[in-house]
Simulated scan of single mutants.
Amino acid sequence: MVETAPSPFTPGYGKKPAIFGGHGEDLSELRAVFETLDFGENHSVLVSGLRGVGKTSFLTTLQDAAREAGWLVISDDASAGLMSRVMDSTIPTLINEMTPETRARLTKLGIWNISADIEYVDRHRVVKPQLRTDLVALSSAMGADGGILITVDEVSAGKVRLRELSKFALQVSHALEDGAQIMVVFAGVKVSLDALLAEEHTTFLRRSRELEFERLSAPETRRVFVETAGIGGRAIDEEALDKLVSLAQGYPYLVQLAGDYAWRNNSIAPCITLVDATVAHDRAIRAIESRVISRVYGDLSDVDQKFLNAMAEDEDRSKVADIVNRMNVSDAYVQVYKKRLIDSGYVQPAGHGYVQFSLPYLGAYIRRQLAAEARDGGNEGGWGAYPAPDLPA
């Protein structure tokens, strides 16, 4: 059996990359808070960007750094039931993982019922528990030993979820007002975060530090490929590196995916070659279209799709006036969807009166889909000529 060298590339969901591309300065500043408890503007942070640009990996990196510094970490997503999960499951688990000395300090606060073995049993209060009270108590028990990092991923713009998130944010803001040492980080696409900021009780989030995750630059993409491969003890041929950089287009998930495919094609060779990069190219393109591009496009509204379809008629940037003509609607109507798609991160300005796709391969995917529909009559399989008969009365 031939031994293989494990790949240092990490394309799995939320996996921390060996080499983090971009936002290095931001990461360093936030890590410093874990050591110093000097928060500055960093009590609340909003991380925005499309799928696959590294938001979840960034949160994972922050969580690891906070734990290493002795902080408590509460991490969850914005799905229904967030408040109850945090209070009924996450916080009790954190209490049981504390040192006996810290749990003893909690016991004196009288908020939780802790057994003789200094283990969490249940709540001991006559009034309904509140998250703010829990957070303040945990922070008091930690003292100068650390703070609390709260990360909430996958913020969405659904009304029910936003109402729950705004209540969650209100509890965190009250805990901050009461002196709790907390850093809270919300992550999602920009339109969803903007919708959260428009909710009641989220005033303190409007003063958050904002980090917008976009594509990496070409030099930064090269650096991530080279240094990640180097961690695994391998080099990358120049031709192979050029092909991989061109393939990834600065999209962090694609960097990790393509690097992993190239690595695994011949993992015992000292160098990643052009052959490896070519294999990675074919596999990564198929994977990114099925796992990301098709889902992104499918999640959009009909009008959003029509806007992007109109853009896809151009190979490069699109003139907004041409989009107006192709959609056969007013300029004002197009401007509304243009702003929405820019805020969502799918489209970016490309000069006065022009836009272009910001998500790699989205335009090519749409062109291929439209061409396929044109060939087979709109994917209805020819059934338009054979309508189903009415059911008998």
Rank of each mutant, 00 (worst) to 15 (best):
Q130P: 04
A144W: 07
A287T: 12
V47K: 04
L46Q: 01
A198F: 00
E101C: 05
D299A: 15
D316W: 12
I342Y: 04
R367E: 09
K55Y: 00
A372D: 15
A284R: 05
P11C: 13
A310E: 07
I268Q: 08
A69Y: 10
E41V: 14
R283L: 15
S115E: 10
V355T: 11
V245N: 04
D376G: 06
R283M: 14
P270N: 13
D237T: 15
E380A: 08
R234L: 09
S7H: 04
P392V: 11
E68I: 14
P219V: 10
G143D: 07
A364E: 08
L135A: 03
P92N: 15
L370P: 00
Y261P: 03
T202V: 12
A310S: 15
L109R: 04
R207V: 09
S79W: 09
L205E: 00
E289S: 07
H23M: 09
G158P: 01
A66H: 06
G381V: 13
D122V: 11
E3P: 12
G233I: 13
D242E: 13
G146A: 10
I293Y: 04
D134I: 12
N113L: 09
I95L: 12
Q348L: 10
R85Y: 04
G22V: 15
N379M: 05
T278D: 07
L241H: 10
G54V: 02
T61A: 12
A78S: 14
R295L: 10
H174R: 12
M183W: 02
L274M: 05
T93M: 08
M183T: 15
E227I: 06
A321Q: 12
E199L: 03
K167Q: 11
G147A: 09
S28G: 03
L359D: 02
V320G: 09
T228E: 07
M83E: 08
Q369V: 13
A66P: 06
E227H: 14
L196W: 00
P270W: 08
L193V: 07
A284N: 09
N379T: 11
L359E: 02
L50V: 14
K243W: 02
D153L: 11
E35F: 10
A393D: 14
S358H: 12
D145F: 05
S166W: 06
S208N: 06
G382V: 12
